[in-house]
């Protein structure tokens, strides 16, 4: 499973990154987490508001930092 955090480095993007790692750890998921900070690459996902969460190439959440529980739901849905 590949998780990508899209964001240009604002505080929300960092929060999303930390929270996603925490969620993945609690679920014992084996996954690869990548931070995407390049705007051109962010745009290639069709995302216009950061931060955004991408799981296995699919955009799951845009412009918001979900709560830990919501994140766990998103990660288990896949």
């Amino acid at each position: 499973m590949k998780i990508q955090i899209l964001g240009t480095g604002c505080s929300k993007c960092k929060t999303l990154g930390e929270r996603t790692i925490a969620a993945a750890e609690e679920l014992n998921l084996s996954c690869e987490i990548e931070k995407v900070t390049d705007i051109a690459k962010i745009m290639s996902f069709g995302v216009m508001a950061t931060p955004a969460l991408v799981v296995d190439g699919k955009v799951k959440c845009v412009g918001k930092v979900p709560a830990l529980n919501e994140l766990k739901d998103i990660l288990t849905e896949v």
């Binding site: 412009g63 918001k64 930092v65 998103i74």
Partner: peptide, 12 residues
Amino acid sequence: KCCAECGCKPKA
């Protein structure tokens, strides 16, 4: 502000 809008699936 950072946006409240979200593409996440709501848990209804």
